[in-house]
Nucleic acid binder design. Structure first.
Length: 301
DNA sequence: AAAGCGCTTTAAAGCCGACC
DNA sequence: GGTCGGCTTTAAAGCGCTTT
């Protein structure tokens, strides 16, 4: 790894958001060539834009930073002491495990995801095995076909592909699946069939689950993004360019205000509680000042 | 050109022993 | 018992290469 990390500045992030609003996600080269954004993004490649957008999307889907997780944890379990922290974490991970592997995937056949306890506990591990089993593809099934099968049979969360990738990687690493040329085969079918006969057999021990997955219903939703993109598409190129430029300017101004608010909060650190209340109040003020479009963009400021 | 994947870097958090 | 400092672990973020 030769090149040092090049951290994204708020201006670059704002330009990226505006570029995606104007051209749509996936048009990274187009965004880079756009003179409106090239001045800010001249240090970035199309791949940089793709990666950053992926990370930002992850944040928007609720895969928050550790800071957010830590704050949430503090609110749930205020200042766990030495020796108590493991208890608090285990309680948290338990609920998350239920949510992550169980909640998002429920049968789609007209029934709601809350269709009763017997089908509420469906683990992604089992679904992957089921998909590979039922697809019966020679040489195994690739991630796309597995995802297609599960999405066809069950309701999947917006970030399902990413969850699936991580899970496939984990299963391959633990030897439950064999990966060959991007295709996955079940390594130990006997174990699976035994588990089917006796569903009480745990698939595996409690996994450490990231807190981000169960928050895909907060902040920016896909429908909101689609709505905004549809609005942009209905505009003339001039209107779109003007709106994007305004978005960049508003985002920069909002971020400057947020930074100022943070500085003021730090100055009030004599009382941590008071500082936190101040930051939240400042955030509300910022959100209130922005247009509806900006509210979408500023969700995870 | 875009997407996917795997790796490294970095920073924060946790752990633990030494010291007062 | 409390705290300080060093070490380890973990996960986000960024980069490079490969595949589609």
């Amino acid at each position: 790894m030769g090149a040092p990390k090049q951290k994204w500045t708020p201006e670059e992030e704002a330009a990226l958001k505006a570029g995606v609003l104007k051209h749509g996600p996936g048009k990274w080269r187009t965004i880079l060539k756009d003179p409106q954004f090239s001045g800010v993004l001249y240090l970035r490649s199309n791949v940089d834009l793709k990666d950053k957008w992926r990370n930002m999307s992850v944040m928007a889907n609720g895969w928050g930073s550790r800071e957010r997780a830590r704050l949430a944890l503090k609110r749930m379990h205020p200042a766990p002491k030495h020796g108590e922290s493991s208890m608090a974490l285990s309680a948290l991970s338990q609920s998350e495990d239920e949510i992550v592997d169980a909640r998002p995937l429920a049968p789609s056949g007209g029934s709601s995801p809350n269709d009763g306890p017997k089908r509420s506990i469906m683990r992604l591990d089992n679904l992957i095995m089921e998909a590979i089993n039922n697809l019966r593809e020679p040489g195994g099934s690739n991630k796309t076909s597995i995802a297609a099968y599960i999405e066809d049979q069950y309701w999947a969360p917006p970030n399902f592909k990413r969850i699936l990738s991580a899970k496939l990687k984990h299963l391959a690493a633990t030897g439950k699946l064999i990966k060959m040329k991007r295709k996955y085969k079940i390594a130990a079918p006997s174990t699976l069939s035994e588990r089917r006969r006796n569903p009480s057999i745990p698939v595996e021990g409690r996994q450490r689950i990231s807190p981000r997955i169960d928050r895909d219903d907060i902040s920016l939703t896909k429908s909101q993004i689609d709505l905004e993109l549809a609005k942009m598409r209905s505009m003339t190129p001039q209107e779109a360019a003007a709106a994007a430029a305004q978005a960049v300017a508003e985002a920069e101004a909002a971020m400057a205000e947020a930074e100022e608010a943070a500085r003021e909060a730090e100055a009030a650190e004599a009382d941590a509680e008071a500082a936190q209340a101040f930051a939240e109040a400042a955030l509300k003020t910022l959100k209130g000042r922005n247009t509806p479009r900006m509210n979408v963009q500023m969700v995870h400021v």
